[in-house]
Amino acid sequence: MSTQFSINNLKATIEGKEILKGINLEIKGGEIHAIMGPNGTGKSTLASALMGHPKYEVTDGEVAINGEDLLEMEVDERARAGLFLAMQYPSEIAGVTNSDFLRSAINARREEGNEISLIKFIRQMESKMKELDMNPEFAHRYLNEGFSGGEKKRNEILQMMLLDPKLVILDEIDSGLDIDALKIVAAGVNAMRSEDRGFLIITHYQRLLNYITPDFVHVMMQGRIVKSGGPELAERLENEGYDWVKEELGIVDETVGQA
């Protein structure tokens, strides 16, 4: 079934400050949406609120994934319903190997007694690591511990590939990547493009969108989507910055939650 993901008037606060002020967005399977916007305008907050981070309180709105109410679900249930968030700053967890973690995540989607066999798991993991040009040694390293910025990002994509989600949010997956790594990560994303999977890509740079062509581009300011367009919008932002958008909309301070 082709994925249907809809965000309707989503509002969220952190420590009592309202950061998301009514987000509306519709993502269908097969579509790639990019969200751009200056620092501190609520992009990561949107990603975290959708994933259900406990620090963010959703105060209004609805989010549905394939007809199911996402906001009613616990974080792990959201993931099992098909949501995947590649985080801007992935956590480091000492003592838990990457492969033990990945296997737990895969098995969390399977019935008890029907766990993935070790051989099959290793085969899958190794083939995806190869696609991402990751050193096989990373399977045995502790999860993200001491990984460089770029290595962490690649590891996020590895997880995405193994977990086969329905809706993927990539929060600045391109930051910290050198140009070769960027191409590899983009190829990984493109390989995952399919009719039943939607993408929401948060980025500051056109250079990622040169490799992953979006269907829609949205600009976020002051905790709202203030402008939407096609791929040409991203190119214009890259060339001209955000001032023209602010001018057009009469926005002076684009940030949100700065008291």
Partner: peptide, 21 residues
């Protein structure tokens, strides 16, 4: 949060972290 965002239950996430310790 990170582990749960990959579909791992809270209980299992805690178990992984404690063993990891």
């Amino acid at each position: 949060f990170y582990l749960m965002s990959r579909g791992i239950s809270k209980q299992e996430a805690e178990r992984l972290i404690i063993h990891g310790f």
